[in-house]
Nucleic acid binder design. Structure first.
Length: 904
RNA sequence: GGGAGCUUAGCUCAGCUGGUUCAGAGCAUCUGCCUUACAAGCAGAGGGUCACUGGUUCGAACCCAGUAGCUCCCA
């Protein structure tokens, strides 16, 4: 029976993924084995798979599959987060298409639409992960707005509020006027933008009445600003007290242009004298720094913007205009009224909403905050103490810097899609925080009657009266306020209401998880906060290792993005190169923690590798076995066994250090070079010749090991081959995915490994000789060995004969005249070729060159050895090594010198 | 402006605690092969002032200082 010449991934992928699901190999329940757990960084429920996910999830799947094969109880928990801003934006867009405005809907009606949308479009990404081969325990799939996870969020809110770690306050927040919500600092993307710097004249008011006229050079001051539309919100003009130019302004006032409101001139060293004119307009309601300045100098706060970014009546003019339209118009007005001195081009950093791309408006508003101070300390210690390892560890510095300068977390969002804040207000705007309406009523009762003096009736009456006015906070909490609970909440949500509760069996078994694989961009607002929540609710870090992947860039180094259109469609790639090919491709170019310059050619390399393995298998499969033949390949079999052990040791070390791309490369070379190019060629019978039983069995066993080694990287191909009938009948649950991972054993025969190394070099030399002399590979050449080492080349005769097409391997004490010669180590080899092909001149040149090289080498070695300080200071083994090098070089030079003489 | 990191072959990267004349891998390139497992392949070959300048050392790609360029994070 013949199998196709190339591996075709498509059928294998669907077939085996379904089979794994059917046999429930991904399923994990607690038992007495050691757990190995990963929780997926929940992708946005509205998202589709992009290259970053591909990388991230390939890594997780490699780790989880390897652990599973190593006999651990491997559990990979999948799920999605509800991405409040992104999802709400999509729902709003959908409604608009249907002609419905959000503001016309009740909260309940809107939520119905939102859930409908989520059911319809949400979770596509999880289906896409299956195409990649992700072996998640799908029965455990979680969503951050699941009933229990939402309850966990509310419990957490109440818990932290009771501890005094959640508070409500007026703060300057990053306002997204398009999404009409506050966003966190982390959700603001700063970009450099070409702007204009407007130089505006503010008329001076001479406060000193008659008598002491000061000869004023200017009757106005000039202020440079990029935001002229905010002048109506100005509360002061600020100068630096050290600025000699403006001494005359101290204690005076100016008029705000156009509206002629009087504002004071204040002094503060905050002002940069060199920037603009050195005069700053202070607008506390619309700039963070100005706000702080305003607080310091007790300035009034005039907020002239509506939540959608249009000007409100407090602006006095241009009411209802959008802020950007207003900017243009105000510039014109200023110009018209001769308040504009000049306009310059100016580049500056402007924040944009990550979700809606609207320019962020610093805005004062009432928000809920979570205190970070108390939680940051322990969360930092886990990392500094090494209880949590960041990989690569360069991120420890960044982590520390952030944790030591942490700011309180604004957790409220002016949205509906998410967990509604469990704060309840009465008609006077007083509030209590409570899990339910009932508890809120109790809360108000307790506030009103702290000493419980009310009769039962009075209490009931109080609540009945309050009830119609009781209103829950309109806002929801930030999505990260759900995801920071993720490593706990996916298993058990009972601990959030009661941290003393040890949790259910799942939580006790799987928590803390082992590895977290995520992007460095969210180290702070996700990883760090998970550590905080883990510590708060479990008293233990949520994971042991955090593997931080790089950003997937295109080969020009640009971040892959939809707008650039430089990101390949991952599902398309899988179709083109196979899931295994793409997985290999991703890993080949992904050093830990560094960005990767992705190029499709890596996937091609992955596909080619899959095909190589496939064809090696075809070779084995095609062999006929002759039971009467004796075992002919003891040496190759012994060698590959040792080589495999040696490579496995290296691969394991790479895995231990999370150097996955190097683990893959080591595997790749073991399979392609050692197994295919050397081992299989050594044992391969001549065309249409049978192979002996023992060789066949050993090779089959090697193959089985190789397939297992490949499985974490290439699950589909390995599973497909695993079930080939070459391996006989397999039991239903006998699958590669649960086969035992090769167990580390040290190579037992170092001599054999190094001697084969020499043999391989010898064979390459002969092949090279043929190539350079254009000798046919079909013509067998006689080989003579003049050994200078302990190696017995007769042991390797069969291998040399086969791979170098040598007619004989003669051992001699003498040099062979009229033959091509070369050295491997201290062993000298002679290949008889037609004398006409030996060019004495070029031969002499080659050898002379080599001697020159060796003499240089020897000189440097001698220099070291004759240097007393070297011999005195260097480690003994280093000195010993130098002596060996010296002897080796001298022996080689002697041989080569003889050869040069013989050529003449 | 503050902090972190990077710079090694055409490309992507290794190079652990200085010690082979140490400069390495994969891909790409070049040469020769359709040798019945594989042209998605086989056999060979070429390719680098380890960013630059100094210093420490018996010895530096590796340690130190400075310079230049790039990237990221925070303001």
């Amino acid at each position: 029976m013949s199998i196709s010449k190339t591996y075709s991934p498509r059928e294998a992928e669907d077939k085996w993924y379904n089979y794994w699901m059917e046999k429930r190999f991904f399923r994990s329940v607690p038992d007495d084995r050691e757990p190995y757990t990963i929780v997926i960084p929940p992708p946005n429920v509205t998202g589709v798979l992009h290259m970053g996910h591909m990388l991230n999830n390939t890594i997780q799947d490699v780790l989880i599959r390897r652990a599973r094969m190593q006999g651990k109880n491997a559990c990979w928990v999948p799920g999605t987060d509800h991405a409040s801003i992104a999802t709400e934006a999509k729902v709003v867009a959908m409604l608009r298409e249907r002609g419905i405005e959000k503001k016309d809907l009740s909260r309940e009606a809107f939520m119905e639409y939102a859930w409908e949308w989520k059911e319809k479009y949400g979770g596509i990404i999880l289906e896409q992960l299956k195409k990649l081969g992700a072996s998640c325990d799908w029965d455990r799939t979680k969503f951050t707005m699941d009933q229990d996870l939402s309850e966990a969020v509310v419990d957490t809110f109440v818990h932290l509020y009771k501890k005094g770690w959640i508070y409500r306050g007026i703060r300057m927040v990053n306002w997204d006027p398009k999404g009409k919500t506050a966003v966190s600092d982390e959700e603001v993307v700063r970009k450099e933008v070409n702007q204009k710097l407007y130089y505006i004249k503010y008329a001076l008011i001479d406060q000193q009445p008659t008598g002491s006229h000061q000869p004023s050079v200017n009757s106005y001051v000039v202020i440079a600003t990029t935001r002229p539309e905010t002048i109506m919100a100005d509360a002061a003009v600020c100068i630096n007290p050290n600025d000699g130019r403006y001494k005359h302004l101290k204690g005076k006032s100016v008029y705000v242009p156009l509206i002629n409101r009087e504002i004071p001139i204040i002094e503060d060293e905050y002002v940069t004298m060199e920037f603009g004119t050195g005069c700053l307009k202070v607008t506390p309601a619309h700039d963070l720094n100005d706000y702080e300045l305003g607080v310091k100098h007790r300035l009034s706060v005039i907020d002239i913007l509506n939540d959608d970014g249009t000007l409100n009546e407090k602006a006095g003019i241009l009411v209802g205009e959008d802020r950007f339209a207003a900017r243009k118009k105000i510039a014109e007005l200023l110009d018209l009224h001769h308040h504009l001195e000049k306009v310059e081009d100016y580049k500056s950093q402007v924040g944009f909403s990550e979700r809606t791309d609207a320019a962020i408006e610093p805005r004062l508003s009432m928000q809920w905050f979570c205190k970070m101070g108390e939680m940051a300390g322990p969360a930092l210690d886990y990392v500094l103490d090494g209880e949590i390892k960041l990989i690569p560890d360069k991120f420890v510095n960044t982590y520390r810097h952030w944790m030591e300068n942490v700011k309180d977390w604004c957790i409220s969002r002016q949205l509906w899609w998410g967990q509604q804040i469990p704060a309840w207000y009465n008609q006077h705007g007083d509030w209590v925080v409570a899990k339910t309406r009932e508890e809120a009523l109790d809360g108000f009762l307790e506030k009103a009657d702290p000493d419980r003096k009310f009769s039962e009736n009075a209490a009931r009456g109080f609540k009945a009266q309050l009830d119609p006015f009781l209103k829950q906070d309109d806002d929801v909490v930030d999505t990260w306020f759900s995801s920071w609970l993720w490593p706990i909440s996916v298993f058990d949500t009972s601990v959030f209401g009661d941290p003393a509760n040890p949790g259910n069996a799942d939580l006790q078994y799987y928590y803390p998880t082992n590895d977290l694989v995520t992007a460095p961009e969210i180290l702070f607002f996700w990883v760090a906060r998970m550590v905080m929540a883990g510590h708060e609710f479990k008293g233990e870090a949520p994971f042991k290792n955090v593997y931080l992947t790089g950003i997937v860039r295109d080969k020009l180094g640009r971040k892959m993005s939809k707008s650039l259109g430089n990101s390949p469609d991952p599902i398309g790639l899988i179709g083109k190169y196979g899931a295994d090919g793409v997985r290999v491709g991703m890993l080949l170019c992904s050093p830990a923690g560094n960005d990767l310059m992705f190029d499709e050619s890596y996937c091609e390399q992955g596909r080619n590798f899959a095909n190589k393995v496939w064809n090696a298998f075809r070779l084995l499969k095609g062999w006929e076995i002759d039971d009467s033949m004796p075992f002919a390949n003891a040496v190759p079999v012994a060698w590959f066994g040792n080589r495999f052990a040696e490579a496995l040791e290296e691969i394991d070390q790479h895995f231990d250090g999370y150097r996955l791309s190097e683990a893959l490369m080591a595997t790749y070379k073991l399979v392609w070079d050692d197994f295919c190019a050397w081992y299989l060629e050594m044992i391969k019978p001549a065309y249409q010749q049978p192979v002996d039983r023992e060789t066949f069995n050993h090779t089959k066993a090697f193959f089985s090991q190789v397939i297992r080694l490949l499985h974490p990287f290439m699950p589909f191909l390995s599973e497909e081959l695993w079930h080939d009938d070459v391996f006989g009948e397999r039991a239903e649950s006998d699958c590669c995915i649960v086969a035992e991972y090769p167990v580390l054993g040290h190579p037992t025969n170092e001599v054999l490994l190094s001697e084969i190394q020499a043999v391989k070099q010898l064979i390459s030399e002969i092949r090279n000789l043929r190539n350079s002399k254009q000798l046919s590979p079909k013509e067998a050449l006689p080989l003579t060995v003049k050994s200078g080492s302990d190696t017995d080349y007769q042991v390797y005769k069969d291998i040399i004969v086969k791979l170098a097409n040598v007619s004989e391997v003669a051992i001699s004490e003498e040099k062979v005249t009229g033959a091509a010669s070369f050295l491997v180590g201290r062993d000298e080899f002679f290949v008889s070729i037609p004398t006409g092909l030996i060019d004495a001149e070029s031969e002499r040149e080659r050898i002379t060159k080599e001697i020159g090289y060796l003499r240089g080498f020897l000189k440097s070695v001698d220099a070291k050895l004759s240097n007393e300080r070297f011999v005195a200071n260097a480690k003994p083994e280093v000195v010993e090594n130098e002596r060996n090098k010296k002897a080796d070089a001298e022996a080689k030079i002697r041989i080569l010198e003889e050869n040069v003489i013989r050529l003449t």
